[in-house]
């Protein structure tokens, strides 16, 4: 089957070489499309990217190659993508927030900005929650802040700088003091909570089994909106702390890409994201629905995300 799709792609390419001038409908790649994934092999971004690539290949007959370019949550990959010549065939896949944080904090050291890319679409949003052990003496963010004020200090586990800034915002607005322990990933946050070393922490799905078993509870949503699985739990903003982060998985190409090529690839991505296989892998990987905001939506997500990140870091 793989061979067949390659033959089809070859045929399509040959046709194209002799065919009419390309428009978005009949643009087809003249060589394999390459998707560069900004994370290492075997992780959730990698797996989602590869299933997406399979779907694109299956639906369009194009030949799609996937490569891993880990480093800095995608910053290394977008750095090299921005330095490549425009070839209409290379696509980058990453997560918004790590890139936005580096752009805000040390944009002068990076060779790219948001305008260096043409955005193609998104796949999913990872939901970020503040969680605590079920027997913690508070149930929501306001209660947690009050408890911290009462105790003098309260240990909280974070995974990344934006979460530190969110907790700093909470400290500033309330005068409570949090003792921030940096963990490497959500699983370690869960470990610290279960071990009793911290009382609360941020997690993006690693806590689900413990919600089911009743060992943990959600304190607040760290996203702009409430969590899909805990619609009654307020967000940080609703709890009086004006801060949020959204982590969106998106795809982009070098700016200056042939508009016909970008449109054709964006359409192929959109069709693939709607497939059952992608929906299933996204559901399994980030516990949420597969959502494509489209090229313009993806760009707006990055622009708004940058403003939000700037606001977080200004304080």
């Amino acid at each position: 089957m793989k061979l067949k799709s390659k033959l089809v792609a070859l045929g399509a390419a040959a046709l194209l070489a002799f065919g009419a001038p390309a428009t978005a409908q009949d643009w087809g790649p003249s060589e394999p499309l390459t998707i560069l994934i900004g994370f290492g092999a075997g992780g959730s971004t990698d797996t989602m990217g590869r299933v997406l690539a399979d779907q694109i290949a299956e639906q369009t007959g194009w030949n799609v190659v996937v490569e891993n370019r880990p480093g800095g949550g995608g910053v290394a990959m977008f750095t090299s993508l921005s330095q490549m010549p425009v070839d209409n065939h290379t696509i980058g896949m990453g997560v918004g927030i790590p890139v936005l944080v580096q752009l805000v904090e040390r944009g002068d050291q990076l060779p790219f900005d948001l305008d260096s890319f043409d955005y193609l679409g998104t796949i999913a949003t990872a939901e970020l929650a503040l969680v605590a052990s079920a027997d913690a003496p508070f149930d929501d963010l306001e209660g947690m802040i009050a408890y911290a004020q009462e105790q003098g200090t309260l240990p909280v586990a974070t995974m990344a700088p934006p979460q530190v800034l969110m907790m700093n915002a909470a400290q500033r607005e309330s005068g409570a003091e949090f003792n921030l322990v940096t963990a490497e990933g959500g699983a370690e946050v869960i470990q610290l909570i279960l071990g009793g070393q911290v009382l609360a922490g941020f997690a993006s799905g690693e806590h689900f089994p413990y919600l089911e078993s009743g060992d943990m509870k959600v304190i607040a949503s760290a996203n702009a909106n409430r969590l899909s699985y805990a619609p009654d739990t307020p967000t940080f903003i609703e709890s009086g702390v004006d801060a949020y982060v959204d982590a969106v998985f998106f795809l982009a190409m070098r700016d200056g890409t042939d508009p016909a090529a970008a449109a054709a690839i964006a359409a192929a991505i959109d069709a693939a994201v709607q497939s059952e296989a992608v929906a299933e892998i996204v559901r399994n990987a980030v516990q949420g629905p597969a959502v494509n905001l489209g090229p313009e939506g993806a760009r707006m997500m990055m622009v708004n995300g940058l403003e939000n990140a700037q606001r977080l870091f200004q304080n």
Binding site: S44, A187, F208, P209, A285
Partner: peptide, 19 residues
């Protein structure tokens, strides 16, 4: 071990106390 967890996850399971 992290890779084995992601294998569990792509099959729709998450290791934890109820596994």
């Amino acid at each position: 071990a992290a890779l084995i967890i992601s294998a569990f996850m792509i099959h729709g399971m998450q290791p934890g106390p109820l596994l």
